[in-house]
Design a protein around this nucleic acid. Structure first.
Lengths: 347, 347
DNA sequence: TTGTAAGCGTTATCAT
DNA sequence: ATGATAACGCTTACAA
């Protein structure tokens, strides 16, 4: 209802003056006028149109966050980090669930582009297909030309600067942890074959196995969901049961854990199960899950902060950053029992 | 870079004509001109400024969702429902985490108001304090006067029309389930004393207990978090251990479950634990959690759909709606063991 | 210190 | 069928 014009009128000053005091800009304004403007604004319940403002300043104060699924705690925690940093800086965040569908993702990028968001934050790995990457890069090209900042978080994405951890190395280390425990028949539950993070984690697993002179043969694949992990574990457990299962993310590890328990396989006595991500659900599982830990909330914060820094310095490139990961040993991993290690015990 | 002006120019038509074809409005435009405009738009990578558009149409195409914490699956699933419906309708959603802080919530309402979002969706119960409610209502008053639609979802909120379930009745029914199982010493882990949903659930518990001639005396309070539930359960278990614990939400029930297990109390043999919400974490817990079920995703969808309906019919009031709840009996509840029912067994 | 006026990129009204 | 032109609500040179 009440625009700046009304406020100015009521305060008996020009729109310019009203704008100046309302924006707290560092500009000389008579104390009296200032007071009148403030009073008028208050009385009229004036609230500046961020839209109009954004139109002229070419700065919307909104950032878009693209996640696979905000219900997955892995994504939720990162998005929360972004939002925390955004709020502190006075930014708003639009959350978009892509369901890992490149087409949906592209459409969102286009829409967010229409809204002239100040930045786009891609959370999670991208789809490796050449054609998909190319298409995404195309829309991103026009987005960046428009001045939009783009950054990836917790996963490689179309070659964008990323706030990330070394997924491959982390998976490699975790595999070594398993190896160190004495496991030889280690099963791996990978994520979708075309998702970059899934591929990197699997690559780390394979390299560690090879380095140990072992064939990474027990590999199943899931879709990063609890059920996907549950089913994959059942498959793995049905033939030559491994003594340990390394799932490419926590959700699947949890599914695997329950699949084992359901099948009467004791964890960790009969089977070790480890995950990747260290979401709180993993920490609260029974037994608690050994997993690769990564500072998700902090990474979300960092992604937004990197965007903020670039925005302030009028840089167009966001500074990438590598975070350390950890191997969090908890109750779901242990040395293989002698019998099981030799494959004598069958579930 | 390229505005509609450039497109019009390149196509050799007026801005008006360009706008008409670009918006697919039902208005006669020569096929030839249309083709030229479309080509020009494509070549120039034209993307309409949703900001400019919103400014003139007074319709931003954005809705704001206010949740306590998007990391809590309870909120995440509802927000996801909202987003799904929003996407389908071409809307974008801004997610705001209030951490259940009324001040933060109000500030967000103000900011979202500045952005002229088309609607505000409050997810979760509000703070009952008279003063807080009044303050919120005030900001909401100016927001609605500005044409913004407001609705509550999964919790009473400042008297707004709500897409909800009957929390009180649900808690009452769940308590009766416990009673029916033979439990008498039933502990309750409530949520914050000033949160409406927490109060309603507790009220349902109390009424069912009273109706059964029992004193609802074993009451602890948490903050709706896993740890809060864990600690509350420890307190409950330390004195006169109840034979059953009803937590006001799943997160706390999960905490209680682990507290029991950690203390060597077997669930459900020695202790029954039930929750409220039926988040997937509850379903995957060991043992799986008996809980009050409510269609969170669907409720989120419904909230957005209600908003959409009001928006389309130019109504200012959103239609409220009651969803049914269920008592989902799973593995964490059972009849009390004879010994324990008499209080002879101590943890 | 203060105000005038030119945009920002669209949509929408009203002629033509 | 098509096109000027006035909003939309604000910021920001540029004057005064």
């Amino acid at each position: 209802m009440a625009g700046i014009k009304e406020v100015a009128q009521k305060a008996g000053v020009s729109i310019t003056t009203a704008s100046r005091v309302l924006n707290h800009v560092d500009y000389p304004v008579a104390a009296a006028a200032r007071k009148r403007v403030e009073a008028a604004a208050r009385e009229l319940h004036y609230s500046p149109s961020a839209l109009a403002r954004a139109l002229v300043t070419r700065h919307s104060g909104i950032v878009g966050v693209l996640v696979g699924d905000m219900v997955d705690p892995y994504f939720a925690e990162i998005a929360r980090g972004v939002e925390d940093a955004a709020r502190k800086a006075g930014y708003l965040v639009i959350v978009c669930n892509t369901d890992r569908d490149p087409a949906v993702e592209r459409r969102y990028v286009a829409t967010l582009s229409d809204y002239r968001v100040d930045a786009l934050i891609f959370v999670g790995g991208d789809i490796l297909t050449q054609s998909e990457r190319r298409k995404l890069k195309q829309v991103l090209a026009v987005a960046t030309k428009r001045g939009m900042l783009v950054v990836a978080c917790a996963g490689e994405h179309a070659g964008l600067p990323a706030i990330d951890i070394d997924h491959r190395a982390a998976a490699h280390d975790m595999t070594e942890h398993l190896l160190g425990l004495g496991h030889q028949r280690i099963g791996f539950i990978g994520g979708p074959a075309d998702v970059s993070t899934a591929v990197q984690r699997e690559s780390g697993f394979r390299s560690a196995m090879s380095a140990a002179g072992l064939q990474p043969t027990l590999i199943a694949r899931g879709d990063f969901t609890y059920n996907g992990g549950f089913e994959a574990a059942r498959r793995l457990l049905s033939k030559e049961p491994p003594t340990a299962i390394f799932a490419a993310n926590d959700q699947m590890a949890l599914g695997a854990l329950n699949a084992a328990l359901t099948a009467g396989v004791h964890v960790p006595d009969d089977l070790t199960v480890v995950g990747f991500g260290d979401t709180s659900a993993a920490q609260h599982a029974r037994p608690s899950l050994t997993a690769v830990g990564m500072p998700r909330h902090e990474m979300g914060l960092a992604a937004m902060q990197a965007v903020l820094a670039a925005l302030e310095s009028h840089t167009t490139r966001v500074e990438p950053r590598q975070f350390p990961y950890q191997i969090l040993v908890r109750k779901s991993s242990a040395a293989p029992s002698a019998a099981r290690a030799q494959g004598e015990l069958v579930a």
